[in-house]
Amino acid sequence: MYSQSSYDGKSLTVYLKGEIDHHSARAIREATDSLIQTNKPKSLRLDFSGVTFMDSSGIGLIMGRYRMMNLYGGSARAVNVPGALERIMNLSGLSALNIIEKRGESCEGSE
């Protein structure tokens, strides 16, 4: 589920929480897309620090938001990804897009 979000006029951060599977991804997707359409942010940050489980539905979720943000001319990143989720993130090929930041890494906010 998504618990909360913050928007600073430029960047929208959605804090994800708990387990992401095919069932829970639907609500996250709807809530996130509605926030994107309302705020039209330049960048979207999906914060995974509170995520305890994720299957490939989470990959679909990231890819879908990435595409949507691209359509709006913005960017999307998955940030604070816990070590336990690294394997599935790597398997997806998303790492090749360079939009996954592990927990502890930070290359945002430097612009």
Binding site: I59, M63, S92
Partner: peptide, 15 residues
């Protein structure tokens, strides 16, 4: 359309 990544079996095989 349902944002299925097409990775279900790949994940099963890898995990």
């Amino acid at each position: 359309d349902d944002e299925r990544a097409g990775l279900g079996f790949a994940v099963m095989q890898s995990f």
